[in-house]
Amino acid sequence: SFAGQAVSLTALEFAILRTLMARPGSVFTRELILDAAYEGNIHVADRTIDSHIRNIRAKMSTAGCDTVIETVHGVGFKLGRCEAAR
C-alpha cells in the first residue's frame, strides 16, 4: 500500500519492484531485472520489462505515487522516490 491505499500488483510486477527495492540507488539493466524477476530459463524479450515497469508506474500513480521507478537512459532502471502526484 502507499499512503493507505492498496496497490494491486501481479506477482511479476511485485518481483520487479522487490528487486529494485533490494538495492535502492543502484541501476539495474533490463537483463538483471529479467534474471531476478523470471525464475528459471524463461526466454522473453528484454523490452517486456518496459511494459511491466509502465504498469507498475501507472498503478502507483493511481495511488498517488509518481516517480517510483526512474529510467536511466541507455542503462536501465532504478528505484526512485515516491513523490505525491500533482
Rank of each mutant, 00 (worst) to 15 (best):
residue 24 P to F: 11
residue 2 F to M: 10
residue 27 V to A: 00
residue 12 L to M: 08
residue 27 V to E: 01
residue 32 L to N: 10
residue 10 T to W: 06
residue 12 L to F: 08
residue 74 G to Y: 07
residue 22 A to Y: 08
residue 74 G to A: 05
residue 71 T to H: 14
residue 25 G to E: 00
residue 65 C to E: 02
residue 1 S to R: 10
residue 3 A to D: 09
residue 61 S to W: 13
residue 18 R to T: 08
residue 62 T to Q: 14
residue 62 T to L: 10
residue 67 T to P: 00
residue 45 A to Q: 10
residue 54 R to F: 12
residue 86 R to H: 14
residue 79 L to H: 00
residue 40 G to Q: 06
residue 51 S to N: 15
residue 76 G to P: 03
residue 54 R to M: 10
residue 55 N to S: 15
residue 31 E to W: 14
residue 53 I to H: 02
residue 18 R to W: 06
residue 8 S to Y: 09
residue 86 R to F: 15
residue 34 L to N: 14
residue 30 R to C: 01
residue 40 G to I: 10
residue 19 T to E: 08
residue 46 D to Q: 12
residue 36 A to F: 14
residue 59 K to E: 09
residue 25 G to R: 05
residue 40 G to Y: 06
residue 23 R to S: 03
residue 75 V to K: 13
residue 81 R to C: 07
residue 51 S to K: 12
residue 28 F to S: 00
residue 19 T to G: 05
residue 84 A to M: 14
residue 29 T to H: 12
residue 28 F to I: 01
residue 18 R to D: 07
residue 53 I to Y: 03
residue 36 A to W: 15
residue 46 D to K: 14
residue 19 T to D: 02
residue 11 A to P: 11
residue 76 G to F: 07
residue 44 V to I: 12
residue 35 D to P: 04
residue 77 F to A: 05
residue 81 R to P: 03
residue 84 A to T: 13
residue 1 S to Y: 11
residue 13 E to G: 06
residue 81 R to W: 12
residue 30 R to D: 02
residue 6 A to G: 04
residue 67 T to Q: 05
residue 56 I to W: 04
residue 17 L to H: 02
residue 52 H to L: 11
residue 47 R to Y: 10
residue 72 V to N: 01
residue 28 F to H: 06
residue 56 I to K: 02
residue 3 A to F: 11
residue 52 H to K: 13
residue 32 L to V: 03
residue 54 R to S: 13
residue 48 T to A: 05
residue 10 T to I: 03
residue 50 D to V: 02
residue 17 L to D: 04
residue 68 V to I: 14
residue 50 D to R: 08
residue 6 A to Q: 09
residue 16 I to P: 00
residue 14 F to M: 10
residue 22 A to T: 04
residue 49 I to M: 11
residue 82 C to Q: 00
residue 43 H to Q: 09
residue 15 A to I: 00
residue 64 G to V: 07
residue 36 A to Y: 15
residue 73 H to Y: 14
residue 10 T to L: 04
residue 78 K to C: 04
residue 36 A to I: 11
residue 81 R to E: 10
residue 81 R to K: 12
residue 21 M to S: 15
residue 68 V to D: 07
residue 40 G to N: 08
residue 34 L to E: 13
residue 13 E to M: 06
residue 46 D to E: 15
residue 58 A to E: 12
residue 24 P to Q: 07
residue 57 R to D: 09
residue 57 R to M: 07
residue 2 F to Q: 03
residue 76 G to M: 02
residue 66 D to S: 13
residue 18 R to I: 01
residue 64 G to H: 11
residue 46 D to M: 13
residue 50 D to Q: 05
residue 60 M to R: 09
residue 9 L to Y: 09
residue 35 D to T: 15
residue 41 N to C: 05
residue 69 I to F: 04
residue 63 A to F: 03
residue 60 M to D: 06
residue 40 G to E: 05
residue 31 E to P: 02
residue 39 E to K: 15
residue 58 A to W: 06
residue 27 V to M: 06
residue 19 T to C: 05
residue 81 R to I: 07
residue 59 K to A: 11
residue 19 T to K: 07
residue 84 A to E: 12
residue 70 E to Q: 04
residue 61 S to E: 15
residue 45 A to W: 06
residue 24 P to S: 07
residue 82 C to V: 03
residue 52 H to W: 15
residue 24 P to L: 05
residue 85 A to V: 14
residue 77 F to G: 08
residue 50 D to I: 08
residue 86 R to A: 15
